[in-house]
Design a protein around this nucleic acid. Sequence first.
DNA 1: CTGAATGAAAG
DNA 2: CTTTCATTCAG
Length: 437
Amino acid sequence: MPTSFYPPISDYQPSYTLPISTPPAESLGSASPSWSPPTRNQNPASKSKVTKSRGGRSRGKRDGTVASCNLHLTGPLSIMTQDMVDPPVRDMEAWVNRSLEERQQEVDAKNGEIPRPMNSFMLYRSAYIARIKTLLGKNCNQNVSRIAGISWRAETKEVREKFENLAVVERQNHATSHPGYKFKPHKGPATTRRTGEYTPPRSSATPGASIRGSSVDWDDRHMREGTPSMMHHRLESFDVGYMASSRGSIPFGTPDSTLGAGASGYLTPMWSNTSYPNGGLHPIGTHVEDLQFSRASPMPHELPYVSSTNGLTGIPGASHELLQPQPTHPVSTQIIGGHMDPQLLDYTSETNGLPMLPGPPTPPTNPYHLWAEEGCYLPTTDSTVPSPVPFPLPASYPVPMQHGPSWDAKYPDPNSLLGDSTSQEIDSWLDQPSSNY
DNA sequence: CTGAATGAAAG
DNA sequence: CTTTCATTCAG
């Protein structure tokens, strides 16, 4: 229990109490191992069979030394790579706000099948995939996923929330784009998924299925968007099928006043700071999307169609109460009038969107180290932890973001999970079971 | 097509 | 509870 990044659960206070201190002092401390890799499966055995990595071995719970990619994570990517500029963190905000046309194109590309909206982790992975690859020095997506998974769980609460919020926006925009969409997973039983057995997962089992783009009635899998009836709400105004054609670039999520706070229609969520890694310097990522917008048309200044979390009220199925900020999950972000509070900007100087101290310049050195075999980051001296300082939110904000140690309470104390056996210094190693390069 | 991750959503 | 699938692309 000692040096965990994560406060003991028992100590955790769900409420808004701001944890003042940051990561437990120990983490900074000398003796203690810097960072305990989060582990996900507390109960390996629980899922008897579990198809794959889910519960079972998944990432080496303890130390896995990765044979192939020796990447040593000593902290979440948002922090570890904060000094990295080369591959920018992908601007996922732009992604979730991509135009309807673009979404429609994607559907067309998939032969009409509507893809599921990405969840928070997927968004996170996408955001950092470039950097992970750089760190790894090679393209091994399996390892990329491992790294992403480890980093994800190690991420600060702020970062995770940011992506969770992005996921919310994505879901909404997705819903708006595809009103009648309903996720229809392939019927399980047919495919002899290797539950406990040997059968090859999805592939062979399914006859002609081939799951993905193939013939599988995409119509069956994902309800086509038609069914206007469903959405007689305000969205109705938009052409059900593809409004793309008609309104072209009009941010379709902005029917009108429903947006409430975000009247302007464009609220940059506070957690969007990721977009600009270098504080103000627009990375490549962003402009890509912009291109589409530009092509699209009028587009004053790229208006995403879903304005913000505040704009949730405008969404059909979303009643605003439901979307109210939850204590543990302050979605509310926060923008006040349509633009990011300048003051806030000061804090978001960095790539990760981690709130930085206003006054004191950000600590020059990166507390986390990372090194990969092929040359990556050298361990910097561990000086001070980026101590998440309470974010000076406008008083009006109902839900104060929880700053401070962002270690998420959801995740049990890794140390406890690991037991002493693991305790160890091992920061985080990827375990690479199957593949061997 | 598989895998590797997490999470949403379905059965 | 279990399973699929969202992303990604080398193998």
